[in-house]
Amino acid sequence: MLDDRARMEAAKKEKVEQILAEFQLQEEDLKKVMRRMQKEMDRGLRLETHEEASVKMLPTYVRSTPEGSEVGDFLSLDLGGTNFRVMLVKVGEGEEGQWSVKTKHQMYSIPEDAMTGTAEMLFDYISECISDFLDKHQMKHKKLPLGFTFSFPVRHEDIDKGILLNWTKGFKASGAEGNNVVGLLRDAIKRRGDFEMDVVAMVNDTVATMISCYYEDHQCEVGMIVGTGCNACYMEEMQNVELVEGDEGRMCVNTEWGAFGDSGELDEFLLEYDRLVDESSANPGQQLYEKLIGGKYMGELVRLVLLRLVDENLLFHGEASEQLRTRGAFETRFVSQVESDTGDRKQIYNILSTLGLRPSTTDCDIVRRACESVSTRAAHMCSAGLAGVINRMRESRSEDVMRITVGVDGSVYKLHPSFKERFHASVRRLTPSCEITFIESEEGSGRGAALVSAVACKKACMLGQ
């Protein structure tokens, strides 16, 4: 009897593995994704193909990295998701002549009506938060230079001027797309009239992360975010950046690689679950690469896999709870928690219980395998993109072996128990001629924006502006 049951459990697990095998990517698959990513990057950089390229390769006008001589107080704003952060950054000489960066910050959550109302409502709310922060720190009387981390696709015309191309991540505030974001912020500050600010720089969160990590390690020339969304930036040779005049030196390019796949480059790798996630998203047909990796989508992918296993009578005796059938019910943090389970399955059992399920031991094991399959594919897909960037940098610099540091931020990278190990191992397999160091950014977005502002202020002083 026991043997029969054991055989049935083994057969069930084997069927589960057959279904989950769809998520496995072979090294040849990853090399294919990497080569296609490089081709799209090239198209994004070139003037004649930029418009139709899915990977936009947006110039950021960040050319210099901090040298350690900029000092002063800077205000930093960070808008990239449902939370908005205001930070005071003091850049100065530390002990023994070292450079020191001290920060104080406060988080504000953005109400739904500000995210989806008008641009005026959104930026009025942001300036209200700045006003509140300055009151708390008794700094209303000071006109501070301000660095703005704005983590949406922007076409820069200068370091302090950028046109919002399109909202992502659930934002829909009308009247912002096609307009200068810094102008919208300046107008809102003017409307309030109770404080003055000098907006000197606007950067993407990947750029802010790279600059913040450069402060720790001067070989950091790539910034990457794996959180709600997924994106990367890197220092490109100016001669390859056709959208900006000049051939000397390097400029940081914001790849906006989340949109890779929007022209069909990933079609052969998309599964039924991916198509369902895409169809029910706020932007169907867009940001397809990001939807395979980002935390906004990972939990939902797992939920759809679990429903398939229920329908195949391989999980929960073929019956799903009402909660499990509800879109968004299986949160991405559950994926991390399930994979963090120590082996007694308590954590998995508790999560499934909150979803109205009474799982068996085998159910718990199957749910864990589903989570591992989805998150491992995410790590491997992400590795193909980064390997594409790094191999490109090595080739354009004609280096036999390139040493490089990548600064990384984002909740999936930082909080998932195995993502970074799987990701690092896969990147290294795909970049055999590179020695890569990964560092995690601390308060990256805010500190990085302030350091970019410090560079901009120093330049302005040198130019006598």
Score class of each variant (00 low, 15 high):
R7K: 15
E51K: 10
V374L: 06
W167C: 11
R345Q: 15
E177T: 12
M298A: 11
F419L: 03
T60R: 01
F438N: 09
A10G: 15
R63Y: 12
V62F: 08
K420C: 08
K104Y: 06
S336Y: 14
D4A: 04
R429P: 07
F150Q: 09
R43F: 12
G258V: 01
K56F: 03
E95Q: 06
R392E: 01
E112A: 08
L58V: 13
V181T: 07
A201T: 00
V302Y: 00
V226Q: 05
E51H: 15
A379H: 00
T255Q: 08
E236N: 00
T168D: 15
A370F: 03
G147S: 10
M202H: 06
K346F: 08
E279S: 13
T361A: 05
G343N: 01
M107R: 13
L25S: 04
A6G: 09
T149V: 15
N254V: 11
K56M: 06
A173D: 12
V181R: 05
R7E: 15
G175K: 08
D42K: 07
L134E: 04
Q138A: 06
Q337K: 15
V253C: 05
D78M: 07
D311R: 04
M87Q: 06
R325D: 05
R447L: 15
F260G: 00
G356V: 02
E237P: 09
S69D: 14
G68Y: 10
G223V: 05
A259H: 06
V305N: 01
H156R: 13
M298R: 02
A208V: 06
G294N: 04
A6F: 10
F148H: 07
P359Q: 03
E443I: 00
D344N: 03
A456F: 09
F419M: 01
D400W: 11
M251E: 01
E14P: 09
T376F: 12
V55A: 02
G261I: 01
V389C: 07
E443T: 01
C252I: 13
V154Y: 10
G261A: 03
F316Y: 02
S69N: 14
K15A: 15
D341F: 04
P417T: 04
L288F: 13
K32H: 05
R327Y: 12
G72I: 02
N166M: 07
E22A: 07
N313P: 00
A460K: 05
C371D: 02
Y125L: 07
F171T: 08
D365V: 09
E290Y: 08
V86F: 06
E395L: 10
Q286R: 14
L276G: 14
G294L: 08
D132Y: 03
K414S: 04
E242N: 02
G170I: 14
A11K: 08
T206V: 12
T255K: 01
E242Y: 05
I436F: 06
Y108V: 04
Q26T: 14
M37I: 13
A176E: 03
A378W: 04
L79A: 08
V253P: 00
R394T: 02
L25M: 07
I439S: 08
F133H: 03
C129F: 06
F148I: 08
D194N: 13
I163W: 11
P359C: 04
G229E: 15
P145N: 09
G294R: 02
Q98W: 06
L307M: 14
T209R: 03
K90C: 10
F438Y: 06
F150Y: 12
R392V: 02
T362P: 04
T431N: 15
R428F: 12
K39R: 09
F330P: 02
I159M: 08
D29A: 15
F123D: 06
C364N: 04
K420P: 10
E395T: 11
L122Q: 06
R250G: 01
Y349D: 15
N254W: 05
L20K: 00
E312K: 07
P111W: 04
I159E: 14
I436C: 13
S398M: 03
R63C: 14
V302I: 15
T431H: 02
N254L: 08
L266G: 00
V226D: 04
A53E: 01
K104D: 10
V389L: 13
L386N: 02
E40M: 08
L20P: 01
K31D: 15
D158C: 11
K39P: 00
S445N: 15
N83I: 09
W99D: 06
M121T: 14
R43W: 02
K90I: 06
L315Y: 01
K172P: 09
Y413W: 08
D247T: 09
F152C: 14
E236V: 04
E70D: 05
L165W: 13
E272S: 12
T332C: 08
L58G: 07
A208G: 06
D365W: 08
K13W: 12
E443D: 05
E67S: 08
S281P: 02
V55E: 00
T206W: 02
C129H: 04
D217L: 04
R392L: 05
T118W: 05
A119D: 08
D217M: 01
T354V: 05
Y215G: 09
T209G: 01
E256H: 03
L30D: 05
Q219E: 07
K346L: 08
I351L: 11
E40G: 03
F74Q: 04
S100K: 11
R327M: 04
L243M: 13
C457D: 15
K140P: 04
G175Y: 05
M197A: 07
P417A: 05
I390F: 04
E93K: 15
E440F: 05
T168Y: 15
A173R: 10
H141T: 07
I390L: 09
Q26V: 12
D4V: 03
T116D: 15
A53C: 08
I404W: 03
A114V: 15
K161F: 05
E399C: 13
P111K: 15
Y289F: 11
T361E: 09
D194V: 09
V310N: 09
S383K: 04
R397C: 12
A11Q: 13
A208R: 04
S398K: 14
Q337F: 05
P153L: 05
S174V: 11
E265V: 08
H380N: 13
R333E: 12
A21N: 00
Q106V: 14
A173H: 07
R429V: 09
D217C: 03
I130C: 07
F171C: 13
N313C: 12
R397E: 06
R327G: 12
G175N: 07
T332D: 10
S280R: 14
A10F: 12
C364F: 04
E331T: 11
A176D: 06
I348T: 10
G117W: 08
Q26K: 04
S280V: 15
S321Q: 07
R191N: 04
G261Y: 00
